[in-house]
């Protein structure tokens, strides 16, 4: 923790960055995002098991982007999200300094984004174990059982779009659900509209989701929507051998054509 605070302070003092995004103690025992410009305030930074929010979501936020060069406290999911955002030209590599956090919570002082790529390449990636257990259970169901499960879960969605707002990869200025000329999917939060919305979001994130689970954590109604995009992350890996957020180069499964792509999904 001290190393993290020290590094953040140095970066701000030397004016190498304009803003540090990290975690601080929030209200009622929660941890939350903090935005630090003053080197003297870096003592607020914390990192522990409560720090689950994917802070990469702020890199595309207008007011945050406006600051310029940003250092960001980044456990694995945040690092991977940053690589996706760089590969999709949403943030500039030179504007981001990664204040890495290892799996054991220790501070990792990365000198460049290439080192971040190398670090990630050595870590076995996949969905968090507890989520994968539920996904396996769902996959073992019949299609009818699975449909019933999801209809029951999605029925109560009221379309507050916390899932979309929490996701670093949901950065479209105008989301498909808000296009009405033509209206691609139903906007109202009725069962069909909800099913369409979550299916659309899942497809749009296939091969881009880093399995951080923030969409599900953000849902005020405890709908486990993160299982949908996590399932697709595995699917994309099995079909195309690509995991999101492992490289700064654009290599997204559904938007990159390769002559040797497997085509065994075509019926």
């Amino acid at each position: 923790m001290d190393n993290l605070r020290k590094k953040a302070k140095e970066l701000l003092e030397s004016k190498s960055v304009d803003l540090v995004i990290g975690y601080e103690n929030g209200t009622n025992g929660k941890a939350r995002a903090v935005f630090i410009k003053d080197p003297e305030k870096t003592g607020k930074l914390i990192y522990d098991e409560r720090c689950k929010q994917n802070l990469a979501v702020y890199l595309n936020k207008h007011e945050v982007k406006h600051y310029g060069r940003i250092a960001i406290v980044a456990p694995l999911m945040v690092m991977r999200s940053i690589l996706v955002l760089i590969s999709e030209c949403q943030v500039k590599q030179e504007n981001i300094t990664v204040l890495g956090i290892g799996n054991d919570g220790s501070f990792l002082d990365f000198q460049s984004m290439e080192v971040v790529e190398k670090y990630i390449s050595k870590i076995p990636l996949g969905n968090p174990e507890p989520d994968q257990v539920i996904i396996d259970k769902l996959n073992a169901m019949t299609m009818e059982e699975r449909r019933e499960f999801w209809q029951n879960e999605l029925e109560r969605c009221f379309k507050c779009y916390a899932c979309r707002a929490a996701c670093p990869m949901c950065y479209c200025l105008r989301c498909t659900v808000e296009c009405n000329q033509p209206q691609w999917i139903s906007a109202p939060a009725h069962p069909l509209g909800n099913l369409e919305w979550h299916q659309l979001r899942t497809m749009h994130l296939t091969g881009r989701c880093v399995s951080c689970g923030d969409c599900g954590r953000a849902c005020p109604l405890n709908i486990p929507i993160h299982l949908l995009t996590m399932q697709q992350a595995e699917e994309a890996f099995h079909m195309f051998g690509v995991r999101a957020g492992t490289s700064m180069k654009a290599d997204s499964a559904l938007s990159t054509y390769k002559p040797d792509d497997k085509e065994n999904f075509i019926l």
């Binding site: 936020k61 007011e63 009221f158 916390a162 707002a165 109202p188 953000a218």
Partner: peptide, 26 residues
């Protein structure tokens, strides 16, 4: 105050007084 806000509608939707609405034709 609002740098942290991600701009979802969770607060408004659980609020007993928030009444903003949108009109949709289906």
């Amino acid at each position: 105050f609002s740098l942290r806000c991600i701009g979802c509608g969770a607060c408004a939707y659980v609020c007993p007084i928030c009444t903003c609405f949108d009109i949709q034709d289906e």
